[in-house]
């Protein structure tokens, strides 16, 4: 259902580059570059929310609003 599809948001000002989100993302959506999280391919995202749940810095989250 397209209407419930969530969009991934990153707040780089909060990211400390620990890599937890990258390690636990089941679909290789993310990587770390220049010590910050980076979305490589959002089309791969299944909206499981692991990155959001395990981010200690609240720097990455899924949102129902439309992405940028």
């Amino acid at each position: 259902m397209a209407s419930t599809l969530k969009t991934l948001f990153v707040d780089k000002s909060l990211c400390k580059g620990c890599g937890i989100c990258v390690a636990f993302c089941p679909k290789s959506v993310l990587n770390i570059s220049n010590e910050k999280v980076n979305i490589i391919d959002e089309t791969l995202c299944i909206g499981c929310g692991m990155c959001e749940k395990l981010c200690p810095d609240y720097a990455i989250y899924l949102n129902e609003k439309e992405g940028k």
Partner: peptide
């Protein structure tokens, strides 16, 4: 949360941030 206090002082990868949330 007190957003004006963010980012918090926990080290990169510290589990405390997750527990606090």
């Amino acid at each position: 949360f007190r957003k004006d206090m963010m980012p918090h002082i926990f080290c990169p990868g510290c589990g405390h941030g997750v527990l606090m949330k």
